[in-house]
């Protein structure tokens, strides 16, 4: 497997999309790897993690894109979620991009933990000085899938998306904005209605400007209310003891109301005693991978 990958990487050398393997560790019969590449969308070097299940050695596999939350890199999910066992079992490749461009030397990018570096919010920024690099939406929906499809044994027709917190918001908007592109979507404690919460308002006004109508294109609750496309089966887990739930940063009720109105199937599970951490993610990641497998392996 490693050899074929290297070959492919060698083939791609000289092109814009050159991959450099940063690490490779055998895990649950497959390999957990990290690659680095020059992103044309973000105009910087980006890392992403990719888990290749044993099945990928003999055939094409579906891909689950995982979007992480605020402050995370590609490392958090691959080291803390324990997703590899279920991914290995169901034969699913999991791709985990970083959460924002890094090292772009934009003024103020490292000033706060909920804006700038580690807080790309999966939007294409329209405001200076962010609009050149902060194009995470296009990165995760276009550039990264292209890169993955051309370098790994994947079935390009079978992709799905999931995420945690800000990444849950990212997963929901990617799925709702691209009907049919993702076969399934799920989220852990997603920011469901960013326009109505402090995090979202800070990020959107910074990246998108003061005009609120432009924010609507990146708000899951708004998008759900106008969704039309193939039926989506959305699974959402939320810890009841999540401090950000009580701080009204996540607002799942708004999304549930919109989905109920639009008859978008959602199963929302409020898990007693769980908080916002990766311990919570770890506890229910198997259910989510099973949920994705149901549609990816159908």
């Amino acid at each position: 497997m490693a050899a074929t990958c290297r070959n492919k990487i060698r083939e791609k050398k000289g092109q814009a999309m050159a991959l450099t393997q940063v690490s490779s560790n055998k895990c649950c019969g497959g390999y957990q790897k990290v690659f680095e590449h020059d992103s044309s969308e973000l105009k910087c070097k980006m890392k992403f993690g990719i888990y290749l299940p044993p099945k990928a050695e003999s055939g094409k596999c579906p891909v689950l894109y995982w979007l992480s939350g605020l402050t995370c890199t590609e490392q958090n999910f691959i080291t803390k979620s324990g997703s590899q066992r279920a991914a290995s079992e169901h034969g699913i490749i999991i791709v985990t991009p970083d959460t924002s461009p890094r090292g772009c030397n934009i003024e103020g990018e490292d000033e706060s933990w909920d804006f700038g570096t580690g807080a790309g919010f999966y939007v294409d920024a329209s405001q200076e000085p962010w609009k050149t690099n902060y194009r995470m939406y296009s990165y995760v929906t276009e550039e990264l899938p292209r890169l993955i499809n051309s370098n790994f044994p994947v079935d390009p027709e079978k992709m799905s998306i999931s995420g945690h917190s800000m990444g849950g918001h990212g997963a929901l908007i990617c799925a709702l904005k691209n009907p049919g592109k993702y076969k399934a979507v799920s989220a852990f404690a997603p920011i469901c209605n960013p326009m109505q919460c402090a995090w979202g308002q800070k990020a959107f006004s910074g990246y998108l400007g003061p005009e609120k109508s432009t924010w609507e294109a990146y708000d899951a609750t708004v998008l759900a209310a106008s969704y039309s496309g193939p039926e989506l089966d959305i699974l959402i887990d939320q810890g009841r003891d999540d401090q950000f739930l009580s701080a009204s940063q996540l607002l799942p009720d708004n999304l549930i109301a919109a989905c109920s109105e639009k008859k978008i199937p959602v199963v929302f599970r409020l898990q007693q005693g769980y908080d916002h951490s990766y311990y919570f993610v770890f506890s229910f990641i198997d259910d989510h991978i099973k949920h994705h497998a149901k549609y990816l392996n159908a």
């Binding site: 989905c259 008859k263 199937p265 959602v266 199963v267 929302f268 599970r269 409020l270």
Partner: peptide, 8 residues
């Protein structure tokens, strides 16, 4: 009961 909400 588990706390589950179903939209459809």
């Amino acid at each position: 009961s588990a706390d589950v909400r179903i939209t459809v």
